[in-house]
């Protein structure tokens, strides 16, 4: 009886698979799409993903369900997506971590070849800030202090291999200074420690930091974007303030498993563009000090490769290890 049933099931499955592969591209999507977020609920990856998912769903005409698969700095969820059916019903929300993980972990997937790029959602710069009790008011003064007593200054980060950690290491490499890394479990605890004056320096996402910069609990010295931020127009970029060539921005994007048919990628890209234009997405990115960016799928693919190369240098020269 069991075999008979499983046979029937297989037959039915085959039938469904056949019909879908033929009809897939014309009537896609005909069921909900799963957006894997390889991070737990609550973080910036998750919130960005949820805002976009809602509108992505409206543009596609079928719901987009967010599926949090967190673990190992995003590796767990990314692996699930890498091995999912390339039928357009599983897509993955990625961030800068995707371009950094290859240099930190042994990956059970190829970060570039296993995926077909869909598009980028936006970028958010890092901001360099210090506790107001520290007698430095500019990037140059900070560099002077760090050179005076190498290794004496300490900076807080959201953890080993985090965006904050890498931004700081890039800063140290570019400016040639030595500041001691003090890792925390997440950006929140790190910021609390700096606001309390225990650690003095911090690289953090502009997102979380803005309200405390505005209230004077933290003193911002520079932003990591190539242009000044709209929400903090008085703060110079780190590059113009004394570390030429420095740029560090987190980014969020969407990829699909490699082999997803091109027409489906095009449909997803079109829907993503619509989702980016929604008022919620605009408002969210604005308040966070992030910017919405558009790229074609191919451009986004090239961007991912260039980001991987950039951070490979930082991870290797900075001696960052996570294993």
């Amino acid at each position: 009886m069991l075999t008979k049933r499983s046979l029937l099931l297989t037959a039915a499955g085959l039938l469904v698979a056949l019909t879908t592969s033929v009809a897939a591209q014309s009537d896609y999507p005909n069921r909900p799409v799963r957006l894997i977020i390889p991070f737990p609920p609550g973080g910036s990856n998750d919130v960005v993903g949820r805002v976009i998912a809602q509108h992505l769903g409206e543009a596609l005409g079928k719901q987009v369900i967010v599926d949090n698969r967190s673990g190992a700095g995003g590796v767990v969820g990314t692996e699930v997506a890498a091995h999912a059916q390339p039928d357009g019903y599983t897509i993955l929300g990625i961030s800068l971590a995707h371009a950094v993980n290859p240099w930190l972990y042994k990956l059970p997937y190829d970060p570039i070849k296993a995926f077909a790029p869909v598009g980028i959602m936006g970028k958010g710069p890092v901001v360099l800030s210090v506790h107001p009790g520290l007698p430095v008011h500019s990037v140059k003064e900070l560099l002077a202090l760090a050179k005076q007593k190498p290794g004496d200054l300490q900076y807080a980060s959201a953890g080993v291999g985090s965006f904050q950690h890498l931004s700081a290491e890039l800063f140290k490499l570019t400016a040639g200074v030595d500041i001691l890394h003090v890792p925390f479990k997440g950006g929140g605890p790190a910021m609390i420690d700096v606001m309390g004056g225990h650690t003095k320096v911090m690289f953090s996402s502009l997102v979380q930091t803005t309200p405390n910069i505005k209230s004077g609990k933290l003193r911002a010295l520079g932003v990591g974007s190539t242009e000044r931020s709209k929400i903090l127009p008085d703060i110079p970029t780190i590059a113009e303030a004394g570390v030429p060539g420095y740029a560090s921005e987190n980014w969020w994007g969407i990829v699909a498993p490699a082999g997803t048919p091109a027409p489906i990628i095009a449909k997803l890209h079109e829907a993503l563009t619509k989702a980016q234009a929604s008022p919620e997405a605009q408002k969210y990115f604005d308040t966070e000090g992030a910017t919405i960016v558009s790229m074609s799928s191919e451009e986004f693919g090239r961007f991912m490769v260039s980001e991987m190369n950039k951070w490979e240098q930082v991870v290797k020269k900075g001696g960052i290890k996570a294993e």
């Binding site: 919130v47 405390n212 505005k214 609990k217 308040t287």
Partner: peptide
Amino acid sequence: GALTIQGIQPGPD
């Protein structure tokens, strides 16, 4: 996050 989506940034003010 929910507040930020609404364009509100909680903080001292």
